[in-house]
Each structure stands twice: as structure tokens, then as C-alpha cells.
Design a protein around this nucleic acid. Structure first.
Lengths: 234, 234
DNA sequence: ATATATTGAATGAGTATTCAGCAAGTATCT
DNA sequence: AGATACTTGCTGAATACTCATTCAATATAT
């Protein structure tokens, strides 16, 4: 019995460490047992993102998530109900965060099309969104998305609105600056470019957020020379 | 005994069908038993690509591959040695095919930087390379690549040579046409754009190879107006 | 005292891997 | 040519293992 107890003590100590590393995003981080349902869920979601980033989709196990969160094995099925639902909630959370950040960038920007476009592009390479950890998690989902309608919907929900705004902004700039290009194609290229740069960021080593942002800006300047300079919208 | 035989007969019939659908890439397609080792390996690789495209990485099982190839369950471990090695061989095969296609495009192109760049861009959206099936398989590997050095090496081997050539071609054009842009950044944006377009092709529905190619061309025209037109290099 | 969160061992489903046996081909001998 | 042993591709049932899920017991909060 005493052996069991000392083992338990050890385990608890290990867990404390894991918890503090993984996610003390806690508002009311009531220690040990009682954390609010919502806090626990977020903690587990954070641990899931960690695991996805570290081990990839196919190697992410509930055991790893639980360990990462410093909790016991059965915990996920208690708070979510299945692995599938945990993953969907995780993707949902990331999509929500992305959308909020995107909306904030839009609100902060001025009214002109050039300012808004500039701001949206900048938002995508913002330090808050554009973490290696999060990009890796996105990547893990994307890799599975083609064969999973649910993931595809969540990954793509964003794309639709996003792309539509891009198209209308490009159209506006085209009208103002009488550029020759087709707005739809230009917008498509822009969002493809940004996705490709994200991709590079995940993979590449000597490749920074700033460099990626720079490449996106170069595109803006090349396509909308009468509206954009390297230092910002004119 | 007779029951066993008739069952066998049925199974063989089913298999024949599967084989003819999946891959009769056979040179010396010696029927039934004796297909050369190499032929069998390729057949299994094709079935693996099918499975990856249809079910995604995490849901691809050896049973599914074997069924797809119309062969028995133990077959993969006989010809490859493990699932891991089959997947690596598959990725290798795709990378080889891509590289060969790319080299061919380079050889066919004229000597000028503009022609070569144009040809390389076209090659990426060629009907032979740019199949939904293959893109989906690439995608499956990419999703896992970040957490698997072996995959990353195979996916990325291409990128290094590829990107270096892009940079030098862009630098050449820059020198000829006295463009303002930094060649490295321009090349980076171009390859990111193309990766992003590939990505879109995998995912999107109402999005064709031609449209993607068009968007890439639009970028070339925008950045190198003195070298490129919508109909080809000047 | 009751409700609620948490644990961790047990369960079971799915799947990679193994391997003994079978059958199609090939070589050798008579 | 026919019979014989030998090689090699292939099969599929048995094995071993990983992991999601369950649940009775326990700890903690109100």
C-alpha cells in the first residue's frame, strides 16, 4: 500500500509539471481536482494541438493527449465522448480563433480596400496565429480533410468567406486603379500564395514569418503597384 | 473440399476484376502467378496510392491495399517488409515520377530563362502529374511529413533543386529585364503560389487544372511583364 | 450527503506481422 | 518425353500488439 501511495505521489508531481508546460490558459485555474468543465476542455484541446504538432495525425493517441494534459487515461472520453469529437472540437477551436483574429484585423483596418487587404495579409502572418505549433496542427487536419467531410467543412468554411472578401477587395482595387487582371484570378492567386507560404513555414527551417510576409507583400506590390508599396498601402 | 474449391474460384474471379482496374501497367504481364517481382511491387504501389487517395493516410490499411491489388493479405509483407517500407517506396515512386517529368519539361524547353520558367510552370499543371488521385496521395504524405523525417526528406528533396533553379531563373530574368524585385523572394513566392494552387486543386471542387495554371501564369505576367505574356514567353 | 470530476485497470475491436503450407514454375535426371 | 526434386511467389489463418472505450471505485467539491 505504501508503495502505491508513493507511486501516486510521484505521478502527481510529474503531472503538475506537464500541466504547467502545456496549458495554464486557466482563468479560474482551481488547482488539482476542480477545474470548470470548460477549462478542462480547453486544456485538453491544447494538449491535442501539442500532440498533433509533435506526432502528426496518425500517431496522436488519447493516451498522449491525456499525458500531455497531465491527466488520466479515461479523461477524454469523460469530457468529450470520443476521440473523433475531441478532434473536431480542436479543429473548431482553431477555426474560431482564426476567424476572430481575421475579423479583428478587418475591424482595425481603415475603410479603403487597399488598407483592408493589407491588414488581412498581415494578419495571416501575425505572431499570434502563425506559430509553428498551430501551423503543424492545421497541417495534420488538412492532410486528412480530403477524405473526411467534417474536417473539410471546418477547414473550408473559412475559405469561402475569406475568398469572397478577397475577390471583392481585388475587384475594388481593379476598378480604382484600372488594372488589367481579372479580379477573381488575382484573388485566387493571392490566397493560394498565402496558403503555400504557410505550408513552407511549417516545413522549412531557415524560413521565418517575416520572410513569408515579405513574399506576400511583394505579390501585392507587383499586382497593385498603384495601391501598394513595400511599406504599406499608399 | 469441393466447397473450398468453388470458393477459391469465386475469389479468383473477383481478383481478376480488381487487378484489371487497379494497374495493368504490366510490361510482361504474365498472368496469375508469375509476375516479376518489380511488376508486383508497382502494382502494390498503385494500390497504395489508390487507398491513400480514397481513405487518407490514417485509414489506409494493408488489407485495403491488398484488396485493391486483388491479392492476398500477407502480400505486402512479402514484397515490402513492413507497411512503413511500402509507404516510403510509394512516396519515392511519386517523387521519382515527378522529378522525371520535371526534367523532361526542362529538356524540352528552349535555352532562354523565360522559356524554361514557363515550361516548368506548365509541367506542374500537366494532366499527367496533376491528377486528383495523385494530388490526394501527396497531400496524405505531406500531412504526416512534419513529424516524419523520412517523408520530409522525400517530399523536400525535390524542393531544394527545384527552388534553386527557380531562383537562378528569376535572377536571370531580373538581370535581363532590370526588374526591381529580389530574385530570391520572387522565386519563393512563385513556388509557394504553385504549392498553394496544388493544394486548392486537391480540395476544391469547381476548380480545374486550367484555372490553376492560369493563376500561375497571371503571376508570371505580373512580375515579369517584359518577358511573359498570357500566351507564352515573349 | 450528494453530486461531480477523475482515475486506471479491464475490455475488445482493429490491424500489422508471422509463418507453415500450397501451387506454379524451373532445372535435372532417366 | 516423363518423372523428380527444387525454387519461388503467394496464401490466409494464427499471433501479437496498439489503442479507443468502458466502468466500478475513489477523491473532491458544495
Amino acid at each position: 500500500m505504501s508503495v502505491v501511495l508513493s507511486l501516486k505521489g510521484k505521478k502527481v508531481a510529474v503531472r503538475m509539471k506537464a500541466v504547467s508546460m502545456a496549458a495554464d490558459a486557466g482563468e479560474a485555474d482551481r488547482k488539482g481536482r476542480k477545474a470548470s468543465k470548460e477549462t478542462r476542455r480547453q486544456q485538453l484541446i491544447e494538449a491535442t494541438i501539442d500532440s498533433l504538432a509533435k506526432r502528426g495525425y496518425s500517431e496522436t493517441t488519447l493516451a498522449d493527449v491525456a499525458d500531455g494534459a497531465g491527466l488520466s487515461r479515461g479523461i477524454v472520453n469523460f469530457h468529450f465522448e470520443s476521440k473523433e469529437k475531441l478532434l473536431i472540437a480542436t479543429l473548431q477551436a482553431m477555426a474560431d480563433e482564426y476567424a476572430a483574429h481575421w475579423q479583428a484585423a478587418l475591424d482595425k483596418a481603415g475603410p479603403s480596400a487597399a488598407t483592408r487587404l493589407w491588414s488581412l495579409v498581415a494578419a495571416d502572418f501575425d505572431r499570434k496565429i502563425c506559430t509553428k505549433r498551430k501551423l503543424a496542427a492545421w497541417c495534420a487536419f488538412w492532410g486528412e480533410a480530403k477524405s473526411r467531410p467534417t474536417y473539410q467543412a471546418l477547414c473550408g468554411a473559412r475559405d469561402v468567406t475569406y475568398h469572397e472578401l478577397f475577390v471583392s477587395l481585388c475587384a475594388e482595387l481593379k476598378a480604382e486603379g484600372s488594372y488589367a487582371y481579372d479580379a477573381e484570378v488575382t484573388a485566387l492567386a493571392l490566397s493560394a500564395l498565402m496558403e503555400g507560404l504557410w505550408w513552407r513555414l511549417m516545413t522549412g527551417d531557415g524560413f521565418s514569418r517575416e520572410k513569408a510576409h515579405g513574399a506576400a507583400i511583394e505579390y501585392l506590390v507587383a499586382v497593385f503597384p498603384r495601391h501598394m508599396s513595400h511599406d504599406g498601402p499608399k
